[in-house]
Each structure stands twice: as structure tokens, then as C-alpha cells.
């Protein structure tokens, strides 16, 4: 059992959803990322996703693209990702989210053991298909961490059961067809997809893409086990006049969202 598994057991017992916050390592700076993690904790987030910035983020909208560029300019590599992971996982369950090539370049067994060694619970791999997953599944098995896959509204029922069979920790539901970024409303299709996922697995299901407000978090918490928020936090940091006010805005947003995930049911 990973810390992430235990978290979902706990929030299920509390009859609420978990709030999962995303930040790329090295953003807004190397030290700044560690302060953002502290701001997340102060605001009451339940789990943290550390992003491994990538040069060609085809699943990301402008907000996370810009943050990835900043992070890469700040010199972020695997070492910085693992440091951020260690900081986060010392306080709450934490995972890494990364495109596949950085894992392959690092070595899949080495990457998986480094996640475990830094207290991480798992890895979210948005562009790794189950067909290409053989080596990765055995690596994550060996390190006893959760391989987490992303499913989309276009995923067929037959394929959903194949994908969720490879998942552990939780299933990541992308709420819309599209890239990451805050949206004014969370697609109605998300509830439907969560229901379809639940017919294939008893794993917790977390919803991401587009959530930015307490109201939206509340809406998603009505039917999902986890609410994932990324772009909204990054935007708060990008829009702030200086780092301190950005961090204050992050904590404030996290507080609001963590109320939202407790109001859904």
C-alpha cells in the first residue's frame, strides 16, 4: 500500500473527495517550487503532483506550456524533480506527472526506484499507452509504486477496462477532449466518464482538466474521489506581482478548493 492508497481509504471514510494540486518542479524557481509546496500544505491540499517539465508538452495548454518553459530555463532536470518530490512526500502523498521520454531517458527501472526512494507514491504518464507499458509495469511493481494512467471521454468501454486493469492508486479522468487549462465550466461529460470507469474498476477515480474554483470542485466532488487542479494554481503565481503575493494566492485558492471537495456530497 502506498501513501496515496491510504489517502483514498481515508477520504472515502470521510465521505469526501481528495484535493490534488499540481506544480511543475522548478517553477516559479527551484526554491520557489518548494515554497509553493508549503503553500499547498498550508491551504489543506491532500496530495501533490510534481510535474517533470518537458520540451514538447502536446497535452498542455498555454498556462502549463509557459510554466514548463520557465522551469526548463531554471535548469530543471530529474534531480530537481526528485528533490521537489521528497519535499512534498514528507508531508502528504505525492506523485510525479511526466511525459514518457524523460523516464525512458533516465532508465525505467532507475526512475521507478528513484520515485520510491524519494517517498513518492506513483507516476502519472499521460502519453504512455498500455501497449507500450510492459517494462514500466514490472518496474513499478518492483518499486511498489502506483502506475497511473489517464483516460479520456473518447475512450471506449472495452478499452477503459484494459487501461484501468493496468492502473493502481487512482484512475485519472480527463474531463474534456483537449489540453490542460482552466475552463469556465467543467464538462458534463466528466460525470458520465467517471460512471463508465467505475463499471470497470473499484479503484478511486480523480478528475482533472479545467477545475479552478470552489464551485467546480464541489461539483466534481459529488461523483469523483479526487479533484485535480493545476493551471489555476500556476495562473495565480503568474498573475501575482511578486512571489510572496503569488504564494498567498495559492494558499487562499487551496483553502477554497479544499472546502469545495468537502461540500460535494
Amino acid at each position: 500500500m502506498t501513501a496515496l492508497d491510504n489517502l483514498f481509504t481515508k477520504v472515502r471514510a470521510e465521505n469526501r473527495a481528495a484535493l490534488i494540486a499540481y506544480i511543475p518542479a522548478g517553477f516559479p524557481s527551484q526554491a520557489g517550487c518548494h515554497r509553493v509546496i508549503a503553500a499547498f500544505i498550508a491551504g489543506g491540499v491532500d496530495a501533490i503532483e510534481i510535474g517533470f517539465p518537458y520540451s514538447d508538452p502536446v497535452m498542455d495548454g498555454p498556462t502549463i506550456q509557459a510554466a514548463s518553459v520557465t522551469s526548463l530555463e531554471n535548469g530543471t532536470g530529474a534531480a530537481e524533480v526528485f528533490q521537489a518530490l521528497a519535499t512534498a512526500s514528507a508531508q502528504v502523498p505525492a506523485v510525479v506527472m511526466t511525459y514518457w521520454n524523460p523516464i525512458e531517458k533516465y532508465g525505467i527501472n532507475e526512475f521507478s526506484s528513484a520515485i520510491a526512494a524519494n517517498g513518492g507514491s506513483g507516476v502519472i504518464t499521460p502519453d504512455l499507452t498500455i501497449e507500450e507499458s510492459q517494462g514500466w509495469i514490472s518496474a513499478t511493481d518492483k518499486s511498489a509504486i502506483n502506475p497511473i494512467y489517464v483516460v479520456a471521454p473518447s475512450t471506449s468501454d472495452a478499452r477503459l477496462s484494459q487501461v484501468t486493469a493496468k492502473c493502481s492508486g487512482f484512475v485519472y479522468v480527463a474531463s474534456v477532449m483537449g489540453v490542460t487549462g482552466a475552463r469556465t465550466s467543467v464538462s458534463a461529460g466528466a460525470a458520465d466518464l467517471v460512471a463508465r470507469v467505475r463499471r470497470t474498476t473499484s479503484l478511486p477515480v480523480a478528475v482533472g482538466l479545467g477545475v479552478s474554483t470552489r464551485e467546480q470542485a464541489k461539483g466534481v466532488a459529488a461523483y469523483a474521489d479526487g479533484v485535480i487542479v493545476g493551471s489555476a494554481f500556476i495562473k495565480a503565481l503568474q498573475d501575482a506581482p511578486d512571489e510572496d503575493s503569488g504564494l498567498a494566492a495559492v494558499t487562499e485558492l487551496a483553502r477554497e478548493l479544499s472546502k469545495g471537495v468537502r461540500e460535494g456530497r
Binding site: 499507452t129 489517464v150 480527463a174
Partner: peptide, 8 residues
């Protein structure tokens, strides 16, 4: 190596 959204 693509997001699941494109598999279909």
C-alpha cells in the same frame, strides 16, 4: 505514445 484521447 499518445494521450488516450487519440487512441480511438
Amino acid at each position: 505514445f499518445v494521450p488516450e484521447a487519440l487512441i480511438g
